[in-house]
């Protein structure tokens, strides 16, 4: 079970959370102005990196807040968690692979 550092509550067990998929995919300001292909990408196309991945998480059985996290998809290490609206932190792969439990 992962240990996830909620930006509001600190480290809490995975069962309290719900993963909401890739982060930083902004809903277009005016969806009706978006071309079909772009809208299709917005809906369905996601990156699947081996390494750092920015994800949305909901601390549903906790403070109820959505937040973003940088997780290494190889090691499952959480390199950073940050509040919604904040930019993706600048972290490299090396940080991710160091042994730590987030």
């Amino acid at each position: 079970m992962l240990l996830i550092d909620c930006p509001y509550c600190g480290k809490r067990p995975e069962v309290e959370f719900h993963c909401g998929g890739e982060a930083h995919i902004a809903r277009p300001e005016m969806p009706t102005a978006v071309e079909d292909a772009d809208w299709g990408s917005f809906l369905y196309y996601r990156t699947n990196p081996k390494g750092l991945h920015a994800e949305r998480w909901l601390h549903g059985h906790g403070c109820g807040r959505w937040f973003n996290a940088l997780r290494d998809t190889v090691s499952d290490a959480f390199v950073a968690t940050y509040e919604m609206g904040k930019p993706r932190p600048d972290r490299d792969e090396a940080t991710a692979s160091s042994p730590s439990n987030a």
């Binding site: 277009p28 005016m30 969806p31 009706t32 978006v34 079909d36 809208w39 299709g40 809906l43």
Partner: peptide
Amino acid sequence: KTDFVGKRSLTRP
């Protein structure tokens, strides 16, 4: 309405 959740998808081919 100019927008609501799901609206844009309704005109996909």
